[in-house]
Write a protein that binds this DNA or RNA. Structure first.
Ligand SMILES: [Mn+2]
Ligand SMILES: [Mn+2]
Ligand SMILES: [Zn+2]
Ligand SMILES: [Zn+2]
Lengths: 157, 157
DNA sequence: AGAATTAATGAAAATCATTTCCATTTATAA
DNA sequence: TTATAAATGGAAATGATTTTCATTAATTCT
C-alpha cells in the first residue's frame, strides 16, 4: 500500500518542478487559493485568503510567486484600471477555460464571458497568424476587454 | 476683416467647451503634444515635451488633464504592463483611426496595427451587441492586445 | 539520515507612479 | 470690470510593488 497520497497535491507540481522551481508551502498555498477562488484577485486579496492558514507567508512572497507563475504562463496578470494588478489562473488541469472580460467603468465589476461567437475564435486565429507573419511577431497570448456600464450603473447614472 | 484666426486652434475646442471645461494653456499644450506625437506617451513623457515651451505647466496638471480627456473619450489610457499608464489620442478631427496593439513582452515595444480591422470591427459590433443584450451591459469601448515576442526578441531569446 | 548547497523567504526600507491638499491664479460670464 | 468658481502648481501624502539582506528551508549529495 503506497503511503503517499497524491489526490490533494494539485496538478501543477509537475510543471512547476520541471521548470526548476522548488515546491514550497507558500507557493502551494497561493496556487491552491487561486484554483479554488472564482474571480480576479489582487496580491493582497490572496494574502488575506492565505494568511489564516499560513500566517507566515508574507506579502512579498505572494508578489514573487505571482510573478513566477505569470512568467510561466500559469497565471494571467490583468489590469482593470483600478490601480492594482489582478490575477487569475490561466487554465485548469483539464485544459483551457479561456474567456474574455466585460469591465464596468462605473463600479469596477468584471464579468467573464466564454460565449464567443464561433467566428470570434476563428478570426482570432487568423489574425494571430496574419499579424505574426506580417510583423515577424511570435504571438502567444491576447487580451480582449470590453468597457462599459453594467445594468446597475446604467440606471444609477 | 475678422481679427481672430482659427486655423491653429485645434478641432477639440468645440467638444471641450461643450462639456463645460475651460480652455487653458496647459490643456491646449497637452492636446497639442498628443496630436502631433506618434506613439504611446506616459504622463511624464508628455510633461517633458510640454515643459520647454510651457515651463509652468506642472505634472499634476498633466495627470488631471489626461484624466479629463480620458473620461471624455478623447484619449485612451492604456496599460502595456510596464508600470505606468500610456495615453494616445482616441481619434483625429477626420474621424476614427482605430487600431489595436501588438505588445512585445521582451522589450516592451508596441506595434499599432490596423490590418484585419475591417473583419474585426464587424465581428466586434456583433459581439458587442450580443454581449450587451445578454449581460445587460452598455458597451462603449474595447481593448484588444496581442502579446508575444518581436523579431529581435525572438532571436536574442 | 546528516551535511552541503543554493533557492526561497519575511520584514523593513526603498521606489516610484499617481493623488491629495491648499493657497493662489485665471477663464469666463454678468 | 468684477464676481465666481474652476483650474493650477508645488509639496506632501498615498499606496502598490520592488529591493535588500540576514535567515530559513528544499533539494542534492554523501
Ligand atoms: Mn476572468
Ligand atoms: Mn496605439
Ligand atoms: Zn457597474
Ligand atoms: Zn521585443
Amino acid at each position: 500500500m503506497p503511503r503517499g497520497n497524491c489526490q490533494g497535491q494539485g496538478w501543477w507540481h509537475g510543471k512547476f518542478r520541471d521548470c526548476g522551481y522548488r515546491l514550497t508551502i507558500g507557493r502551494e498555498a497561493i496556487l491552491d487559493i487561486l484554483s479554488r477562488s472564482e474571480g480576479h484577485l489582487s496580491a493582497e486579496d490572496i494574502y488575506i485568503k492565505v494568511h489564516p492558514k499560513y500566517p507566515n507567508v508574507g506579502l512579498t512572497t505572494i508578489y514573487r510567486t505571482l510573478d513566477v507563475l505569470s512568467n510561466l504562463g500559469m497565471v494571467y496578470k490583468l489590469d482593470f484600471g483600478d490601480g492594482r494588478a489582478r490575477y487569475e489562473l490561466a487554465e485548469g488541469p483539464k485544459g483551457a477555460h479561456h474567456h474574455h472580460h466585460l469591465v464596468c467603468t462605473g463600479c469596477n465589476s468584471v464579468i467573464d464571458y466564454t460565449d464567443f461567437i464561433d467566428e470570434e475564435v476563428e478570426l482570432l486565429q487568423q489574425t494571430e497568424k496574419g499579424l505574426g507573419k506580417k510583423y515577424n511577431f511570435k504571438i502567444n497570448n491576447h487580451v480582449i476587454q470590453f468597457y462599459g456600464l453594467c445594468g446597475k450603473c446604467s440606471v444609477n447614472k
